[in-house]
Nucleic acid binder design. Structure first.
Length: 211
DNA sequence: CCGAGGATTATCT
DNA sequence: GATAATCCTCGGA
């Protein structure tokens, strides 16, 4: 093994067991990695996240008792919570907080780093800026599917994990309301629980582009 | 460039 | 029966 080979080091369960807002903030700059069944490696820098706590958060699927859909949020930290919405789209979340506490972080946007040819093949006739600049888009580009729900993302065995990479300093982080909540009442509608990297072109256009 | 409206279906009430 | 943590197309400026 050459010394220059990257050794995969997924973020451990103890990272995801932290408070959800802390996890959402600290995931900025980390690297989302996907190894396809054929062996191709895709990765991207996480540039936008949203925190969904359970219990008191009326915007979160975790606000309800366990159901068929939200059950993974009650499970151990570091597992994937992948759900279907709007009749067409899958969303990738990572479960946070200790087991039994229903919370997760939604991965909303990444900046492509590896596997650009694979992403291009999945997004024909779309420019690179539209491959991963939204939660449903990045799931498509990375070949993530609904049957990967509950994958353990703290090991490499499931072909999906997050590695530490760059750290984003506080003065490059922006926060704002979560996107797409529509009928959620205040104060949850306006809580600044969306985090993104200031000025990064791959941040979604979901709630304005002020950066 | 920008905003409005439609698509499309699993899950929940 | 209604809703949805979205995306895309289209029409107007």
């Amino acid at each position: 093994m050459a010394t220059s080979d990257r050794v995969p080091t997924p973020l451990p369960p103890s990272f995801y067991a932290q408070p959800t807002l802390t996890v959402a903030r600290r995931l900025l700059g980390a690297r989302l990695v996907r190894v396809l069944p054929g062996g191709a490696r895709l990765s991207g820098r996480i540039v936008e996240t949203e925190a969904y706590t359970g219990l008191d958060d009326l915007a979160s699927h975790g606000r309800r008792k366990p159901t068929k859909r939200n059950a993974p949020m009650y499970g151990p930290p570091g597992r994937a919570y992948i759900y279907f919405t709007y009749g067409n789209y899958w969303m990738l979340n990572i479960v946070t907080e200790p087991e039994g506490d229903p919370a997760a972080v939604l991965i909303r946007a990444v900046e492509p780093l590896e596997g650009l040819d694979e992403m291009a093949a999945r997004r024909p006739d779309r420019p690179p800026l539209e491959w991963t600049s939204g939660p449903a888009k990045l799931v498509l580009a990375f070949g993530i599917t609904g049957d990967m729900n509950t994958t353990d993302m703290t090991t490499t065995g499931g072909g999906l994990w997050i590695e530490p990479d760059e750290s984003v300093p506080d003065d490059r982080v922006r926060t704002g309301p979560r996107v797409g909540l529509n009928t959620t009442p205040e104060p949850w509608l306006s809580l600044p629980w969306r985090f993104w990297v200031a000025g990064n072109h791959y941040v979604s256009k979901g709630s304005g582009r002020k950066q």
